[in-house]
Amino acid sequence: MFSKKCPYCRGKNLYLKQTSLVVKYGCRDCDKKVKLMRENGMSDKDIMKVIK
């Protein structure tokens, strides 16, 4: 089920990223930060710790 809040920063500034086959949402507040952290090899748990 879809949550109305971002899983990382718990903000409500979500937008629709992709609609074909799978619906994906992104957060305007932390999307760029999360992308950079994933490229550097951080896990989801580590990203949540840094952003909070």
Results as ranks from 00 to 15, higher is better:
residue 29 D to R: 07
residue 47 I to W: 01
residue 3 S to T: 09
residue 46 D to P: 00
residue 13 N to P: 00
residue 51 I to Y: 02
residue 25 Y to S: 07
residue 41 G to W: 00
residue 21 L to W: 00
residue 34 V to P: 00
residue 32 K to L: 14
residue 47 I to S: 03
residue 48 M to G: 05
residue 47 I to D: 02
residue 20 S to R: 05
residue 47 I to Q: 02
residue 40 N to G: 09
residue 43 S to N: 06
residue 47 I to M: 05
residue 24 K to W: 03
residue 22 V to E: 11
residue 4 K to W: 04
residue 40 N to C: 10
residue 4 K to G: 12
residue 23 V to I: 11
residue 18 Q to F: 02
residue 35 K to A: 15
residue 29 D to S: 12
residue 3 S to E: 14
residue 42 M to G: 04
residue 52 K to W: 08
residue 24 K to D: 10
residue 49 K to M: 09
residue 52 K to Y: 12
residue 50 V to I: 15
residue 8 Y to S: 07
residue 49 K to G: 12
residue 34 V to D: 03
residue 35 K to N: 12
residue 25 Y to M: 09
residue 29 D to I: 13
residue 47 I to N: 02
residue 20 S to H: 05
residue 31 D to P: 01
residue 31 D to E: 14
residue 36 L to V: 11
residue 2 F to Q: 09
residue 7 P to W: 04
residue 5 K to S: 13
residue 2 F to D: 12
residue 27 C to V: 03
residue 35 K to T: 13
residue 1 M to P: 10
residue 21 L to Q: 06
residue 10 R to W: 04
residue 21 L to I: 04
residue 3 S to K: 10
residue 47 I to C: 05
residue 13 N to Q: 07
residue 31 D to H: 11
residue 31 D to S: 14
residue 13 N to E: 14
residue 14 L to H: 02
residue 45 K to G: 13
residue 27 C to M: 03
residue 48 M to F: 03
residue 45 K to D: 15
residue 17 K to V: 07
residue 14 L to F: 03
residue 6 C to F: 07
residue 22 V to F: 07
residue 43 S to R: 04
residue 32 K to G: 10
residue 5 K to T: 13
residue 11 G to F: 04
residue 16 L to N: 04
residue 26 G to L: 09
residue 28 R to V: 07
residue 2 F to G: 11
residue 5 K to W: 03
residue 34 V to Y: 02
residue 23 V to F: 04
residue 18 Q to A: 07
residue 40 N to M: 10
residue 48 M to D: 05
residue 15 Y to N: 06
residue 26 G to H: 01
residue 34 V to M: 06
residue 51 I to W: 02
residue 11 G to N: 11
residue 13 N to V: 06
residue 33 K to V: 13
residue 16 L to V: 13
residue 12 K to V: 12
residue 34 V to H: 01
residue 42 M to Q: 04
residue 36 L to K: 13
residue 50 V to Q: 11
residue 13 N to A: 10
residue 45 K to A: 14
residue 47 I to F: 02
residue 51 I to F: 06
residue 12 K to S: 15
residue 15 Y to H: 08
residue 11 G to A: 14
residue 33 K to G: 02
residue 4 K to D: 15
residue 51 I to N: 03
residue 32 K to T: 13
residue 43 S to P: 02
residue 35 K to Q: 12
residue 46 D to T: 06
residue 51 I to C: 08
residue 14 L to Q: 02
residue 22 V to P: 00
residue 22 V to T: 10
residue 11 G to Q: 05
residue 11 G to M: 04
residue 39 E to N: 10
residue 37 M to W: 01
residue 9 C to T: 03
residue 43 S to L: 05
residue 41 G to F: 02
residue 37 M to D: 03
residue 50 V to L: 14
residue 15 Y to R: 08
residue 19 T to E: 11
residue 8 Y to N: 05
residue 14 L to W: 00
residue 35 K to E: 15
residue 51 I to D: 05
residue 36 L to W: 04
residue 7 P to L: 09
residue 47 I to P: 00
residue 37 M to A: 08
